[in-house]
Amino acid sequence: MAKKTYDLLFKLLLIGDSGVGKTCILFRFSDNHFTTTFISTIGIDFKIKTVELRGKKIKLQIWDTAGQERFHTITTSYYRGAMGIMLVYDITNEKTFDDIVKWLRNIDEHANEDVEKMILGNKCDMEEKRVVSKERGEAIAREHGIRFMETSAKSNINIERAFSELAEAILDKTAGREADADAARIAVERRPSRAPPARACCS
């Protein structure tokens, strides 16, 4: 097998109501002229992004909800293995902000207890249509002890920074757990396929 070219792997999720701009956050320039009808018709499942933090090469695997959020039932399987969650609302849409509380409850129910969260108030380039003040965003984040940032996927404000900060917060938690731990986890997941020998010892 080829040598490992990275130190850590973090699975991140984007969560929030439909239309808050999750897909635009996932793809920096998604509404420019490079957008091809073929790819946008099928839709993106996830992407891999490489960042370097404190001298470590980190692979971020970032997932979009694929429209599951419309039914307000993000399934447990979507949350499985997630180490970080970007919880997104739209500063021009009150309901998407009110729903943050629902999403936080959903995360508490389904995600790993120590998942790192960050709230993003997206579309901050649309100041004239703003209905949710930055202070309210900060307040709800403080109340739940979560990081907060206002972003604009369209104007590329704070997007890179948001992912770096989330990754850094996870890095703080995982300090000490290196790529080996990741390899060990994969080995554990594969164990069921070795079931026959285990049965043999019981017969």
Partner: peptide, 9 residues
């Protein structure tokens, strides 16, 4: 994970 940056549909 060999990819630096890539999207999957």
């Amino acid at each position: 994970y060999t990819f630096e940056n890539i999207g999957f549909t």
